[in-house]
C-alpha cells in the first residue's frame, strides 16, 4: 500500500522491463500430510486458485509422513499437473513431529514468507491474500488466523466442543496473556527467518506447539497481526478431541505458565 519507491535513477538510460529492482515476495506453503489422499488434491486446487487469482508468487511444499493410504501417489500426480516449481514434494519415511516437518519443509523453501496450514480443508486458502495484506499493512512478523474475533468462527462443532474451546481459550488468555486471540490455531503466515528462530526454541508437541510458537514470539518481541478466519471442521476423515487431548493441552498450558 504505502510503499515509497526508492528511485535510484540509473545514469545510463536503459529501458529494461520494470519490476527487477524490487525483490518479489514469494510465499511457501508448508503442507504436512498424513493420510490425506482425499483432501490433498482439493486443498492444492484451492491454493492454486487463490494464489493465481491474486497474482501471488508461491510454491506448495508437501511433506508426507509415509502415509499408508497413497497420499504420496496423489501428490506425485499433482506435481505432474501443476509443475515441480509449484508443487514440491519432500516426503519423509515415517510419522515424525509437526515441528520437524516444518524444519524439513523449510530447508527447501525458496520463499521469504512461510504459510502453515492444515491439509484437511478446515483452513480455506481464500484467506491467504488477506493474511498477506495484513502482513504488509503492519509489517508484521507473524499473521495468525483467528476463530475467536470479528467474522471468525467455526463450522461443525457441537455445543460441548464450543464450550471446551472457548473455556480453554479463556483460561489460556488469563494465564499467559499472549497477545493473540487464537493460540491453538495453525493457520499462520511467518517471515521465514522468524519461523526458523521460533522452531528452534519450541519444544512441545501437538496443540501446545502452536501455542508455544505464539508465546515465544511474544518473548522475542515479534509482532503479530490477526485475521479472522472461518474454520470448517474436517469434511472427510475423523476429527478428534478426546480426553487425552484435553489432558495434554492442560499439561502444556501449565508448563508454559510456569516456564515463560
Amino acid at each position: 500500500m504505502a510503499s515509497v519507491e526508492v528511485s535510484c535513477t540509473p545514469p545510463r538510460s536503459r529501458r529494461e522491463p520494470e519490476g527487477r529492482a524490487q525483490r518479489q515476495d514469494k510465499y511457501s506453503v508448508l503442507l504436512p500430510t498424513y493420510n490425506e489422499r482425499e483432501n490433498l488434491p482439493l486443498i492444492v486446487w484451492l491454493l492454486v486458485k487463490s494464489f493465481s487469482e491474486s497474482g501471488i508468487n508461491y510454491e506448495i511444499i508437501i511433506i508426507d509422513d509415509g502415509s499408508p493410504d497413497g497420499t504420496r501417489d496423489v501428490a506425485e500426480q499433482l506435481e505432474k499437473i501443476y509443475g515441480s516449481d509449484k508443487i514440491v514434494l519432500r516426503p519423509r519415511e515415517k510419522k515424525l513431529g509437526l515441528g520437524t516437518a516444518y524444519i524439513h519443509g523449510m530447508k527447501h523453501a525458496t520463499g521469504n514468507y512461510i504459510i502453515i496450514m492444515d491439509a484437511d480443508l478446515s483452513h480455506h486458502p481464500k484467506f491467504i491474500p488477506e493474511f498477506i495484506r495484513k502482513q504488509k499493512e503492519g509489517n508484521f512478523d507473524i499473521v495468525s488466523g483467528t476463530r475467536y474475533k470479528g467474522n471468525g468462527g467455526v463450522y461443525g462443532w457441537d455445543l460441548k466442543r464450543k464450550i471446551i474451546s472457548r473455556g480453554a481459550n479463556f483460561i489460556t488468555q488469563i494465564l499467559l496473556r499472549p497477545g493473540a486471540s487464537d493460540l491453538t490455531g495453525s493457520f499462520r503466515l511467518y517471515r521465514k527467518e522468524v519461523l526458523q528462530k521460533l522452531i528452534e526454541k519450541c519444544v512441545s508437541k501437538g496443540y501446545v506447539f502452536q501455542m508455544e510458537m505464539i508465546v515465544r514470539a511474544r518473548q522475542l518481541n515479534y509482532t503479530i497481526g490477526e485475521v479472522p478466519i472461518s474454520f470448517v471442521d474436517r469434511v472427510y476423515g475423523e476429527s478428534k478431541l478426546g480426553g487425552n487431548e484435553i489432558v495434554s493441552f492442560l499439561k502444556g498450558l501449565l508448563t508454559l505458565f510456569a516456564t515463560t
Binding site: 524490487q22 495484513k134 503492519g138 486471540s181 490477526e226 485475521v227
Partner: peptide, 23 residues
C-alpha cells in the same frame, strides 16, 4: 530490494495485537 515504509500503527479497526514494540 525492499522499500517498505515503517508504518505507524493504527489504533482502531485493525486486528492489531502487540502494541508493546515500537515499530
Amino acid at each position: 530490494m525492499r522499500t517498505t515504509t515503517p508504518r505507524r500503527r493504527r489504533g482502531g479497526g485493525a486486528w492489531l495485537v502487540n502494541d508493546f514494540r515500537t515499530p
